[in-house]
Structures are given as structure tokens and as C-alpha cells.
Amino acid sequence: MRSREDSEARLNEALEAYRAAAHADADSHFDERALETQRARIMARLEQAGQRARVLPFPGASAGVRPGSGHSRRWISAAAAAGLLIGLVTGQLLHVMPGDNWVHRDPVRLSPGPASSRLAVVPAIVQTSFDSEDALLDAIDAAITQRGSSDLRAYDDLTFSEPWK
């Protein structure tokens, strides 16, 4: 029992020493001048808090008509809409026009070099649309009749057949 009382007394003593040390440690960071400075800051903040918030006027130059606003903006919108409409109508008309099975092609490039290098040459043909295989054959027929057979040599290279032998 006595030892417990002694232990508690020693703990209280140690805590007293700790408290004194903690106070001294804090006080060493905040001398009288620091306290005065802090008081002044607090009072300044309170003074500011008491004032009504000031509303800054919007700069006069930017209060005018901004570029791209109002009248001109409406014109831009109308022009964009008209452009879209014209594009759509033109697209529809092109589909309605006769001879719609088109093959857009670049001129077939023939390789002037040896056969090995010719194999690497691929005709730059862009096929947009064919309704059927017949349409494709018709297009090929037309090409044969209009151009010389040498024009089709590249096709031959691709199909592995030997029609000229």
C-alpha cells in the first residue's frame, strides 16, 4: 500500500517536472514580443472581419461587346448550318446521278524494272462501292476495252494466272 502511494507521488513529481519543462519549452518560442505581434494580428483580423466585403467593379474595357458575341455569333452559326445543309444535299445528288457504280482509281503504275521488283508494285486502286460481282466485271471489261492489255499486267501479277502465255 505504502509503495503504491510512493509510486504515485513519484509519478506526480515527474509530471510536475514535465509540465514545467513543457511550459518553458513553449515559452522559449514565444517571448513577449511574439505575443504582442500575435495580439496585433488578431486585432487586425477582427477589424477586417468587421468590414463589409468590397465588391470590385468589373474592368470597363471588357464590359463592352466581346468579339464573337451577339450579332456576329449568329452569323457564324447560320453559315455553319448552311454549309452542313449544302454538304448533305450534294452528297445525296451524287448518289442519285446515273453511272453510280464508280471505281475511283489512280492511274495504274507499271513497274519498269524486272519481274521481281514488279511483284512489289500494287496498283493504287480505291474501290468505293460495287453492287455486285457483275458490276466489278463490267468495270474490268470497260478497262480492257479502253486501255491496252499492258495496263492489266499488274492485275495478272496478283491473280497468279497466266492469260498471256
Binding site: A22, H23, D25, A26, D27, H29, F30, L35, Q38, R39, I42, M43, L46, E47, G50
Partner: peptide, 22 residues
Amino acid sequence: ARERFGALVALLQRRALRVAFH
């Protein structure tokens, strides 16, 4: 009120700083 508050700050400031710093 603000003037009197200065006195209250002076009264509690040291103690408040000790607690906050610790």
C-alpha cells in the same frame, strides 16, 4: 467589444500557446 476583447486575448494568450504548441 473589440477593445475589451484585446484584454481577454492578453489574459489567455500564453496559456493557449502552451497548449497549442505542445
